[in-house]
Computed example of a mutant assay.
Amino acid sequence: MGIEREIKLALPPEQADAADRFFSGIAGTPGRDVPLVNIYFDTPALALAGQKVALRLRKTPDGWLQTLKAAGSVQGGLHSRHEWETSVPGEALDFVALEHACDDAAALAALRAAASELGERFRTAFVRRLWQFEFDGARIEAAIDRGEVTAQVSGQTRREAISEIELELLRGEEPALHALTVRLSAAVAGLTPEDINKAQRGYRLCAQ
């Protein structure tokens, strides 16, 4: 089991270049662009969401990954969630691999109860610009995500733009994330804590 700890910040689109310069300056290198497509699964009644569980397939340049995320916490843009991730050979879920990876009884119970009714509910597609660097004794991955969330509901496509920054703690102590956020906010105008993650945006589109 891993615990993902990251700060999410809403990024005004017109400030994307300023954020890019900030991270490139700290890392000493330009960011690396990674196109990502995520397919989120749930039952028609959104049973997983009701249990605060998220299940997705992610297409990366290196192949497919499946991720199960369980209930976590969020405060001031800092998101903490348990997650389990495994590789899969293609665009299909592997429940056996998920059950072997996941060590949380409640998350497994929710997955098993929903398995027979799972289907795609929404997608996110965005380009992630990535940097990794040391900051205040911690290893941090910074990302600028720009793209959109889409959901097919009653034959119509619903959309919401994505423009945000994620600061993930890879190694070290959490205060380094907050210190970096303070420095970033002083350099890039208009940043605000983002307490709604991409999956929650997709569910919001489904429910509108």
Rank of each mutant, 00 (worst) to 15 (best):
I162H: 04
Q15E: 15
R139Y: 08
P35G: 04
E99W: 08
L111R: 00
V53Q: 07
A110W: 03
L65R: 14
W64K: 06
E174G: 01
G31L: 03
M1E: 13
S154F: 11
A105Y: 08
S185G: 10
G90L: 02
A143P: 07
C206D: 07
E160Q: 15
A45M: 10
A49C: 13
V188Y: 03
Y40F: 14
W131R: 03
L46D: 13
V153A: 09
K52E: 13
S163G: 09
G137W: 12
L167R: 08
L11R: 00
A138K: 10
L57F: 10
Q156N: 11
Q152L: 14
I140L: 15
R139T: 14
T43S: 15
G119T: 12
P35K: 02
L98Y: 00
A143C: 14
A27V: 06
R56V: 00
D136I: 09
G63D: 03
A189Q: 15
G77R: 03
L9N: 00
Y203F: 14
A207V: 11
I162C: 07
I165K: 00
A187Q: 11
I26L: 13
A97D: 00
A18F: 03
E160S: 14
A18Q: 08
S185M: 09
W131N: 09
K69P: 04
K52D: 13
R201T: 10
G25E: 12
I3Q: 13
P12T: 05
E6S: 01
G190H: 07
A143N: 07
T67R: 05
R58M: 03
E91S: 15
P35L: 02
F126A: 00
F22Q: 00
L57V: 00
D17G: 12
K52H: 11
F23M: 08
T157K: 09
E6L: 03
R112Y: 11
F122H: 06
H82R: 15
G155M: 05
A187D: 09
P193Q: 10
G77H: 05
A71T: 10
A47S: 15
V88K: 02
C102V: 12
E14K: 10
R201N: 07
A107F: 06
I7P: 04
Y203S: 07
A189C: 10
S185A: 15
V153C: 08
D104Y: 01
G119N: 09
L118M: 05
Q208E: 14
D145E: 14
V188C: 04
A199N: 08
V182M: 15
G77T: 04
F41V: 02
A70H: 11
L191A: 11
A142Y: 09
E173I: 02
V88D: 04
A187Y: 07
A70Q: 07
H79W: 00
R112C: 01
G25D: 11
Q66W: 04
S87P: 11
R121C: 12
E134P: 12
R171T: 15
I7M: 10
A176E: 05
A125Q: 14
T192H: 15
P12Y: 01
V182Q: 13
L93I: 08
G202D: 04
A92L: 08
R139C: 13
D94Q: 06
L11E: 00
R5C: 09
S154V: 10
L46I: 05
L78S: 10
E173F: 02
A189P: 07
A125Y: 01
